[in-house]
Nucleic acid binder design. Structure first.
Lengths: 244, 244
DNA sequence: GACCGTTATTCTCATACTGAGAGTATCTCA
DNA sequence: TGAGATACTCTCAGTATGAGAATAACGGTC
């Protein structure tokens, strides 16, 4: 049977079913540390192991809808959350039960004082990305890709504002960058840069009620501007090792 | 039935099957125009309509493998081709036959003098991206996303070298940028920039055999360097409209 | 209430990068 | 041989960035 005959006789419905899931990498900043939402699996495989929240897509549901639904089921939040598609994973053996293709999503949420309201019998919790448990499936790889994407998007989009409240100070914004990138930034230069990028933030004319906990003057409050892309971009400090 | 019961009783195998396909957006430059590989559909739906090459993933095959296979089936090329995953599309009604989730891939090939060697009974051809026929399914949307991704990747990766041969001149590289971005570039500044980005190109010490067709001195020949990221990046001219 | 340590915000200065325009040399073609 | 085209190099002004520092407003402590 040559290639042509093979193709002509190929009927996907005659093969073992393929299931499609969405997995959501939801990120937030808690106490100055980047956290990711994980759920404890309540059934095999990987029973008891932590995993990214996700599940099968339902009939009539688009991928984006499925991702938003999964996120809402675990966090109860639908508002103020930015969500976008990341990548798809389809290694034949990534799930021992059957062939599963997973579409991953990346979500950013503002600081959440309350953890979450899981809808499932399983537990859900925010984990600091530096103190992760061993994850189920290939979720460590997915998370790694998600973190790199998040770090990159901070450079050229106003995404950082998704991690803070509706009104914020330049310093709060700077701490978002420092937390996600994991590097300290020059406060003065950061301040100059943020205010010079058109549309990134706009002044509310207000200031904080009081100075910082350890002193310092009251800071001006800003809200997110209307820019969708930052120009010029806010580049991370040199990453010589990643260039080659 | 509340949400919990719904989930507990949910078994994806009891739902109509979902099929997963890969669709490849293969780009090349022919005669100074960006072209995309299309195939003419030989069966319904959209019989006779042009579409992106693609097909169902096979058992035991990873997504990347499936994309590479589909591309090879239509072009016969596997070498010198850069291919990467783009995005996934899963609107419930995007294929009238059944629920199909499609993972799109982006491929870049050097200038191909010969069109392609289709393996299928259907026709395949390179189409200039400005003279496209009406496409099947949601392939116009996928192609649009692919073009935007390709334009963006030229900025911060050495991808442009994938469109030219193993040895090339700075001007050839510039024409790649001009073709994909659709804007003329300042030859002098481009030259300075290319040579100043570490690892983008390296000199072969050779020059072209003769000057350009319409005159001009022989140009020095370069090969791709070892950089994976361009730093500083080569930014497109202002795109004011895209910023907000 | 004076003083100290912190933090917000603004400045300075040297260096780097970019866009525009132009100059020089080399080639092809008529 | 001359005209036009192209490769490659330079100059200059405007803009952006990293580093360091100055100024000033606060909270907390003694």
């Amino acid at each position: 049977m040559d290639e042509h005959e093979y193709l002509a006789g190929y009927d996907p419905r005659s093969y073992p079913a393929v299931a499609v899931t969405v997995d959501v990498v939801a990120l937030t900043i808690i106490g100055g540390v980047l956290h990711v939402l994980l759920v404890e699996r309540g059934e095999p495989p990987f029973l008891g192991r932590w995993a990214l929240p996700g599940g099968f897509i339902r009939p009539g549901e688009d991928l984006d809808q499925a991702a938003a639904r999964e996120l809402a089921e675990e966090t109860g939040m639908t508002d103020r959350v930015h969500i976008e598609q990341l990548a798809s994973y389809g290694a034949p053996d990534r799930d021992p039960r059957m062939r599963i293709v997973s579409v991953s999503y990346l979500a950013f949420a503002p600081d959440l004082p309350d953890p979450q309201a899981g809808s499932d019998a399983t537990d859900a919790a925010w984990y600091g990305v530096d103190r992760l448990p061993k994850l189920a499936f290939d979720h460590e790889r997915i998370l790694g890709h998600a973190l790199e994407r998040a770090r990159a998007k901070l450079e050229y989009t106003p995404l950082a504002t998704a991690f803070v409240g509706p009104r914020f100070t330049i310093s709060e914004l700077r701490r978002v960058y420092e937390t996600v990138w994991g590097v300290p930034l020059h406060a003065g230069n950061f301040h100059r840069k943020i205010l010079s990028v058109p549309g990134f933030v706009e002044s509310t004319g207000e200031t904080t009620e009081s100075g910082g906990a350890r002193g310092g003057p009251r800071a001006k409050l800003y809200r997110a501007g209307d820019a969708r892309l930052l120009h010029p971009a806010l580049l991370r400090p040199e990453r010589e090792e990643e260039i080659r």
